[in-house]
């Protein structure tokens, strides 16, 4: 059911098999959106697509590919846009946590973490920016899932954090660029996600009260797609947590094992 009288939104989702992406896609399906799903497992994509159709999506197209290995991101997005009859939004969800301990001794692992989370994502974002700037849609937007791990490097995951920090700055710059365009201006939204219980974090034991569920964060992410600031901490409590973490003097921070 559409919340407003506008025509159904056409959305490209990169990394549609991520737990957070699927929760967001269900919200979009509920409003009758038309979706193009990108991820690498074709069978799983079919399962998710069938579900989203029954949950109300106007149409669901699937594109099975390795998102870190795409040579022609713009071509792929154009193909999806043609299937949907236009593009209102591109959402970037995919990512890997990687193995920080291994990344310290094994460059291949470190480079993989950076390639997937930053280099390939930057390629998609820059390609999407060209299409979104050219889109006549009044709701044109790019949204990227970054992480609070990018706000301050810490010993537990700073290679991943550095890649996400790079992605956040890229998006921040894009938002600055979009702000100088004539209205209706496209949006460039960075979601700085806190802890969410998903397959990515399944190995972490003892999840305390800071842990959110994908279905809790999805409505907040989609609200940010439409309005509000261009950098959003989700859940909002992380804005204050990260403010404190960033302001913490080094001699204290260095004693905390994170």
């Amino acid at each position: 059911m559409s919340k407003n009288a506008q025509s159904p939104r056409r959305v490209i989702i990169l990394g549609a098999l991520s737990a957070v992406a699927e929760a967001c896609a269900r919200e979009l399906a509920g409003e009758g959106a038309h979706l193009a799903l990108f991820a690498r497992n074709a069978e799983r994509l079919e399962e998710v697509a069938a579900d989203l159709r029954l949950r109300g999506a106007g149409q669901v197209q699937i594109f099975a590919r390795d998102l870190a290995g795409e040579a022609d991101c713009e071509g792929a997005l154009r193909e999806a846009g043609a299937a949907l009859g236009g593009i209102d939004a591109v959402l970037v969800f995919y990512g890997i946590l990687g193995d920080q301990a291994r990344a310290l001794s094994d460059w291949a692992e470190a480079r993989h973490i950076i390639d997937v989370n930053f280099t390939s994502a930057a390629h998609w974002v820059l390609a999407a920016a060209r299409l979104i700037e050219a889109s006549p849609s009044p709701r044109a937007a790019i949204l990227v899932i970054s992480s609070v791990a990018g706000d301050r490097g810490r010993r537990g995951n700073f290679v991943y954090g550095a890649a996400k920090a790079g992605l956040s700055v890229l998006m921040q710059g894009l938002a600055h660029r979009f702000a100088a365009l004539p209205a209706p201006r496209p949006r460039a939204v960075t979601i700085k996600l806190g802890f969410v219980d998903t397959p990515m974090t399944a190995a972490i034991e003892k999840k305390g009260p800071l842990w959110a569920k994908p279905e809790d964060v999805a409505p907040v992410i989609l609200k940010a797609l439409d309005r509000g600031p261009s950098i959003v901490y989700v859940p909002f409590i992380w804005r204050f947590i990260m403010l404190a973490v960033r302001l913490m003097p080094g001699f204290i921070f260095n004693r905390i094992n994170l």
């Binding site: 737990a19 399962e47 998710v48 069938a50 579900d51 029954l54 949950r55």
Partner: peptide, 9 residues
């Protein structure tokens, strides 16, 4: 509970 999809109707 991670397996919560509709398959066909």
């Amino acid at each position: 509970r991670g397996l919560d999809r509709f398959i066909a109707f």
